[in-house]
Simulated scan of single mutants.
Amino acid sequence: MQKQDLPIEEIDKAVPGDIVAFERGNETWKGKVIPSGCTNSVVVDLSIMEELPDRDVDSHLTCINHRKYTILSRENQT
């Protein structure tokens, strides 16, 4: 069984402090996951992106579904 075939509860989810990447339009975005009460998604702080001021955004925070991001690094990797 492949990762995309597993129920969302059984795959790795990002937790606060993790750095994630996701696609929006034809661009790759990345940010740091912050604490939230979301169950099907994470809230991501985009302010870690150097090029963020060049992008058309109203806020430095965004919400991303668990199926739509890739974890780039974990805050508490052992």
Score class of each variant (00 low, 15 high):
35 P>D: 15
4 Q>Y: 06
32 K>P: 00
7 P>H: 08
41 S>L: 07
54 D>L: 15
56 D>I: 15
1 M>A: 07
12 D>C: 07
68 K>Q: 08
2 Q>H: 15
3 K>L: 03
46 L>D: 09
70 T>W: 07
47 S>T: 12
11 I>D: 09
48 I>M: 12
30 K>F: 11
57 V>Y: 10
22 F>M: 13
41 S>N: 10
8 I>M: 13
53 P>T: 10
34 I>A: 03
49 M>G: 01
12 D>F: 03
55 R>S: 08
9 E>D: 08
22 F>K: 13
41 S>Y: 02
69 Y>P: 02
16 P>K: 01
41 S>V: 10
29 W>G: 01
15 V>K: 06
51 E>W: 02
9 E>F: 04
61 L>V: 11
37 G>W: 03
2 Q>D: 08
41 S>W: 00
72 L>N: 05
24 R>N: 08
23 E>Y: 12
56 D>P: 09
32 K>M: 14
6 L>K: 07
64 I>P: 09
63 C>W: 08
49 M>S: 02
3 K>I: 01
2 Q>E: 10
53 P>S: 12
6 L>A: 14
68 K>M: 09
12 D>Q: 07
25 G>Y: 00
5 D>C: 15
69 Y>V: 00
56 D>C: 12
74 R>S: 15
21 A>H: 03
33 V>I: 02
76 N>K: 12
29 W>R: 03
67 R>F: 11
48 I>Q: 01
17 G>T: 04
50 E>R: 10
42 V>Q: 07
32 K>R: 15
45 D>G: 05
22 F>H: 07
61 L>N: 04
43 V>S: 14
59 S>Q: 09
22 F>D: 03
19 I>K: 08
10 E>V: 11
14 A>H: 04
39 T>N: 09
48 I>C: 06
59 S>H: 12
75 E>V: 13
58 D>H: 11
38 C>D: 06
14 A>D: 05
